[in-house]
Design a protein around this nucleic acid. Structure first.
Lengths: 202, 202
DNA sequence: TGCTGATTTGCAGTGAGTGCAAATAAGCAC
DNA sequence: GTGCTTATTTGCACTCACTGCAAATCAGCA
């Protein structure tokens, strides 16, 4: 990694940190990009060479999660079916939620509920990730799945989990508490996949 | 319906029509709200009392679809299970795609692929609709489903169909052709729900 | 016709995001 | 280190979506 790359990574992290602080203190809408850039000691214009939009500050490591999921699919065990591998991959994606000691994750969750543009961005990220996972899944099981089948299966899993999670999170009294969120995620996976798990048991 | 309401509905439709023309001619991004407003003969400022944002011009009748779906759930037949009712409701939502002689629908499809902000909005609309359907479904089957179960089920169905449809639409050579799109939707539903349909047959 | 409350509109302003060209800094050869 | 090349940073000017506010306009009704 060259000096250039190091510096770039450091600046990027500084931006995320600055944003985390400012978002916590002022909320998402009230924080301007100029403020974030100033706090990270770069010009306002330069911000846009690090993140394409303000919302993306809340999703700084999408590709990292993606790589984890892809890796999970790549290390397919001989006795695993498509559903098993997919479930393993999805669990991995979900677990990474604790990044940055949870502060950013908590903000993300809060703003997904409060700020429409953030919700929209989150759904897009999820959708893209899901699509890529489906592609890899189809590759890993050329006999059992084609592109459409893999997409449908992935969409069903992710859709079920997301929808269940949404309902469960409505009843959480403190969305800032990682333990409660984690419990909700697990319960969502559990409830959402019940039909498949019963099926698999036969 | 009072004169006021009539006029309001007419203006709203004029805005959608104007937008349809301009979007077709110039694309989404290149069309400004000022242009749309001018074409519909209202002030730019007034536009925002009809639509909250530019993207919403592409989703003018969300609540209408919603009502159709809710109605489908309300008219539950004695021999229908949750999955049957849900499937019937979802088919209804999909069929309404032919509104406005298809021009707006074609634009919507095109911009969902091309313009990120439109894709984001579409996903939000879908997500909200899905949530509401789940709520009604849970109400209609208080014995069989709770809120979480209904959400998971709806999320699975919608997620599977959407994901399958996305893949299928990639291979359509002319996305402006309603027949091809319709065929893709049907195939997507078919493929996506195969597991459930097989299950139900037992 | 005249009153009342809702709708429309212009105006001024904020802030996101972009294109461009000049300044700056990194990487590298010597 | 000194220069040269190339990538990055930055300021500037600009467009456009969207909002708050206050004045003007209009529908509905007595």
């Amino acid at each position: 990694m060259s000096l250039r790359d190091h510096k770039r990574a450091r600046t990027r992290q500084a931006l995320v940190d600055a944003a985390t602080d400012l978002f916590e203190r002022q909320g998402f809408e009230a924080t301007t990009i100029a403020q974030v850039a100033a706090e990270a000691e770069i010009g306002t214009r330069t911000f846009f060479s690090y993140f394409p939009a303000k919302e993306d500050l809340l999703f700084p490591e999408t590709d990292q999660r993606m790589r984890a999921a892809v890796h999970a699919i790549g290390t397919r065990q001989p006795d695993e079916g498509p559903a098993d591998v997919l479930l393993r991959a999805l669990r991995l994606v979900g677990e990474d939620s604790d990044d940055l000691s949870g502060r950013l994750a908590a903000l993300r969750l809060r703003f997904i509920r409060e700020v429409p543009s953030v919700r929209g961005r989150a759904l897009q990220v999820q959708f893209d990730t899901q699509r890529e996972i489906a592609r890899r899944l189809a590759e890993a099981f050329p006999e059992e799945l084609d592109e459409v089948g893999a997409a449908a299966m992935t969409g069903a899993f992710v859709g079920a989990i997301t929808a269940a999670l949404q309902v469960l999170l409505e009843d959480v009294d403190d969305p800032g508490d990682p333990a409660q969120v984690q419990a909700a995620v697990e319960k969502a996976v559990d409830r959402a996949l019940k039909p498949w798990l019963i099926d698999a048991r036969r």
